[in-house]
Design a protein around this nucleic acid. Structure first.
Lengths: 198, 198
DNA sequence: CAAAAAATAGTTGATTCTGACTAGTTGATC
DNA sequence: GATCAACTAGTCAGAATCAACTATTTTTTG
């Protein structure tokens, strides 16, 4: 039952492979690196993930220190099992395009619930927002590379950009098909449905 | 909070907008329609979702019947609030390309943990699997359309196909860039990291 | 036609996740 | 130099999720 479910765990293993840290330090590090863009992350859940990984023997408590009256900081280090797990987990993620459930897929599968005219308008709005996203990411990449970072460290943004472009192309094609082929039948079908309600 | 989190709830609202049903009937219907391809769905969680929607006033118990010694079946119907929520939720999903966390994005953001030579091999494997997925979906679409279904009812598969193609194109480009530009520096960087472990 | 398999309908518990909260500390502002 | 905000470090309650289980009935198969 997938400890390989929570990708935050992968990030923890990866960072700890650099050097031991305590949860809060990792929390700051991830915040500074803007990792939340790529990995769902909340301060609170980090402590749970550390706990899980420790129970699974992938990390171990190294020392517990305390400064003044602040709460204790427990520093964790990666174990050999953890190093192995990190490698295998990464391999799986790269080689296997799992099966995911994007929100838009769900919406498309139920799209008949809306009237085609409205859908066309909503799709135009979608296109605008997709463009805005793309612009943001392009700026982010350009700025970061200009500041001297190797583009390899931004390859995930590159991937996101590729998906956004495909999404936009699809959206455009979908609009066209509603306008040219599907609109009329769809409107009729939708009208029938509403009738049946009353 | 966010009742708009679980997309299974959206499916329930959508199906109940056709006619009242009890959870088990909907479970069978969704299984028959292969909705699990688009919406994460497990039999057990359906009862919870019905409960949530009822508590939110979006659906109401209509009647409770029983056949023989089988457990009771509670039939639920959509309320006006539910109908409104269905519309608004759909609008949001279509117009707003939220922010999602694909597994591959997480892996890419930590890709430095692997050696470039291995990454290239893994990416080749990824490409093979992406091709296989695409072939499956094309067959699915062709067969279903040949059997007389309007392509609109498969538009979500079309979208998935578009994303898979973009993923594949990205993967190919990534392989090329490792081979041509990035491989050497990356290997050196990776070597340094391993040193620091020892 | 007896036994095994599948379908019917739903409940339960163990685990996960999220957001809010605690409680002391440093830094900034006026 | 008092006050207010932000940071440090972590805990905890309540909601959400998933898998496994109950217990009956229908269908299939040998």
């Amino acid at each position: 039952m997938g400890r390989r479910g929570n990708l935050l765990g992968l990030a923890v293993l990866s960072y700890l492979s650099g050097r031991p840290m305590h949860p809060y330090e990792l929390s700051r590090t991830m915040r500074d690196n803007d990792d939340a863009r790529s990995i769902k992350f909340s301060h609170g859940s980090l402590y749970m993930v550390f706990g899980q990984l420790a129970k699974a023997g992938l990390i171990v408590e190294q020392e517990t220190t305390r400064e003044g009256q602040r709460p204790e900081r427990t520093v964790y280090a990666l174990t050999d099992a953890g190093r192995t797990e990190l490698q295998e987990w990464m391999r799986e993620l790269v080689a296997d395009p799992g099966h995911e459930y994007p929100r838009f897929v769900a919406a498309l599968s139920l799209i008949g619930a809306l009237h085609p005219d409205e859908v066309v308008e909503l799709l135009h709005e979608r296109r605008r927002r997709l463009s805005a996203r793309q612009a943001e990411i392009r700026t982010l990449i350009d700025d970061t590379v200009a500041a001297g970072t190797h583009p390899l460290f931004l390859v995930e943004e590159d991937y996101r950009l590729a998906l956004l472009e495909a999404d936009q192309a699809f959206t455009t094609r979908f609009i066209d098909r509603i306008d040219n082929d599907w609109g009329r039948q769809w409107a009729a079908f939708h009208h029938d449905m509403e009738e049946r309600q009353a």
